[in-house]
Design a protein around this nucleic acid. Structure first.
Lengths: 152, 152
DNA sequence: AAAGTATATTTGTCAAGGCAAATATGTGCT
DNA sequence: AGCACATATTTGCCTTGACAAATATACTTT
């Protein structure tokens, strides 16, 4: 009659729920690691530093889009991270509306300290998947993401 | 030297970011569908109705755990959903501390209306994966979830 | 049965994020 | 140049969710 059979022990979570659960666990694990190292950063702030460390300076809105964060929220996160001394708001060369957000030396150092902790959590999360399975998971997620964005 | 090569056009999102992006898109898509049908429900509320529709009546805290929502937040969501007439708080038979949350007829009818919209979004999201790939994605995510939870 | 501990629900408080309005620039068209 | 429209950042306002405290009830041990 319908496409799904309910005759399982685990009622088979839908993709939406499952993604939420997995993400929540990753956030929890990362924030625990951060706290364990006495680093006063939330997951969002950690992500922002990571983007900057890996992709280099960019504008606030590029940063916002890349972590799926509202522009207003980004402004406030930048306030906090700037206050902590991890980044700097510089004028953008080509666009006087925009900012060029760049890591300070302290921000860079902080990222050096965090990169291990980051990799540890991700490795732990994927420890039951072998290399090719990890790549496949990644590929599937990217395809799902593209499918959702190219909605037509 | 390190395990990741950065020589790709797309800098290979980490699992944490990717999950966030995909989930955000699914939430966005679902809320757009709900709005298009003039249904005044947020994604969280939709999830709650879905759980109740699929798993039957349960206590507020079971519900909260199953959608990874704080107990306090659940109380307020239940307030709203009860006010809209979609569910009822009944006394729990075996445990006088707890509630038995059950859908009303209106809540059931609402779910009937939403189930299509739900499946449409999930199908669209996974449209570039064939059946076995969808199953595999699901399996990988569940394994990651277990790995994160059984942290030891 | 009394005490101590664990769980369910509710409420207060606070931080984070979404949305809209304001301001300052860019970009394209005429 | 002038105008319309799009984009970048900031700020105010509001909702949601996390955390903690309060209350009620269960469960366990003495």
């Amino acid at each position: 009659m319908n496409t799904e059979s309910m005759a399982f022990a685990t009622p088979k979570e839908s993709l939406g729920i499952l993604l939420g659960l997995v993400r929540a666990e990753i956030v929890r694990a990362m924030e625990a690691e951060l706290a364990a190292q006495n680093v006063d950063l939330r997951f969002t702030q950690f992500l922002i530093l990571k983007r900057l460390a890996r992709l280099g300076p960019m504008s606030a809105s590029e940063l916002a889009r890349s972590v799926e964060l509202d522009g207003g929220a980004m402004t406030r996160q930048l306030d906090q991270l700037e206050r902590k001394g991890y980044l700097r708001r510089c004028p953008h060369e080509q666009d006087r509306r925009a900012l060029r957000i760049e890591l300070t030396a302290a921000g860079d150092a902080m990222w050096q300290q965090l990169t291990d902790c980051n990799e540890r959590v991700l490795a732990a999360a994927q420890r039951t998947l072998d290399e090719s399975e990890q790549a496949q998971l990644h590929d599937y997620l990217e395809r799902v993401l593209r499918a959702l964005r190219d909605k037509n």
